[in-house]
Simulated scan of single mutants.
Amino acid sequence: MEFIDNAKLMLESMLGPFGPLMLVGGLGFTMILITLPVLLKKRDDPLDRLKASTRTTEKLPGKPEKLRAASGRDKLEKYANFLEPQDAEEFSAVKLKLMQAGYQGKNAVRMYHFAQFALGVIGLIIGVIYAMMNTSGQDVTTQDLLIWVLIPGGAFYMLPKYWVTRRQAMRNEAITHGFPDSLDMMLVCVEAGQSLDQSIIRVSRELKSGFPELAGEFELVSNEMKAGKDKGAVLKDMAERCGVQDITSFVTVLVQSQQFGTSISDALRVYASEMRDKRVMRAEEAANKLPTKMTLATMMLTVPPLLLILIGPSLYGISQNLGGG
């Protein structure tokens, strides 16, 4: 104990009151710098080494070099084992959530986990700085230090998850609002003599200004159909990307209509009518919720001033009488 006290006094005499905390922070930062490259280092795949050796042996003396080298834009490729979940189910769940939030890139999962890791480290650094500023000339317990350091780190770490969840909810709401109009427009196009593929292209063009999220989904569907992908698989992928129950039911109706050979226009007419009724019911539901939501605000804003006006003079008179007596 005497050795620890002497060391603490020596640090305080050399570095001031922040000496012990600066030493702990420096050691922790050094450990992060030492262990981070080890954790992020990606092991060489034996198959990749075999492919590289095969390319080297197959290269002819007079053969020119590659005209286009690999684009180094994906800087996080070598950290994929650290930044991506190794469990297939967890990876699929995160990828689906990001797709429904509008992030459909192939590296979306990697960037998401990198954002969580980077923001968590930034939060820890902010917490350490805040703790150093608040421990000047004060006796601070270890619990307070942990709270000051870990709370910013945890908040910053959870920030990407909150952002993605919020974006997913906003995108689902926008798609839900624009879907009935898209069905009416698609029904008009089909009844005018256009095929389903042509009607989807036309709807995607017309909806770009009002509902860009839904227009982007229809445009992706039309491009996949042009590429030759199966129509049922394309529609099911759209339902999975959107994550809206109305579109899932719509896709089921179209797939069944295609399988049984029924008229697509009849199916669209019935389903569009149901979507219009559902939109009206949704608006009525929101209108019926409004008085309940306004009750608390009305009570908070009207009852206290009313009580102050009614009871205030009486309370003032009572206090004056008791004070004078």
Rank of each mutant, 00 (worst) to 15 (best):
A297L: 15
V280K: 14
T302D: 10
L296S: 00
L290A: 12
L296A: 02
A286I: 09
K293Y: 13
M294F: 09
M299N: 00
P313Y: 01
I311E: 03
P313W: 01
G312Y: 00
L310R: 02
L307Q: 13
N288Y: 10
P313E: 03
G312T: 06
L301Y: 04
L306C: 13
T292V: 06
L301D: 05
A297E: 05
L296N: 07
I309V: 04
A283L: 13
G312E: 01
E284L: 12
I311R: 04
A283I: 11
G312V: 06
K289D: 05
P304G: 05
T292M: 14
P304L: 02
N288T: 11
P305H: 05
I311K: 04
L290Q: 03
S314Q: 08
M281T: 12
P291L: 08
E285Q: 11
N288P: 06
T302W: 13
V280Y: 13
T295Q: 14
E284C: 07
L308T: 12
A287I: 06
L306D: 12
M300C: 03
T298N: 11
S314D: 02
L310N: 01
V303L: 00
R282L: 07
T292I: 05
T292G: 11
R282K: 06
L310F: 04
A287Q: 07
L306M: 13
E285W: 05
T292P: 05
P291F: 06
T302V: 12
T295P: 03
L310I: 11
L310Y: 02
L301V: 14
I309T: 09
L301W: 01
A297H: 07
M300L: 01
L307D: 08
L310Q: 00
P305D: 06
T292K: 12
L308M: 13
L310S: 03
I311S: 06
A297F: 15
M294Q: 01
V303I: 01
A287L: 11
S314P: 02
A287V: 06
P313M: 00
P313I: 00
P313H: 03
G312L: 03
V280M: 14
A297G: 13
M300T: 02
M299W: 00
L308R: 11
E284T: 08
M281Y: 14
L306T: 15
K293M: 10
M281H: 13
I309E: 01
N288D: 08
L310M: 02
A283Y: 12
L290R: 07
L301N: 02
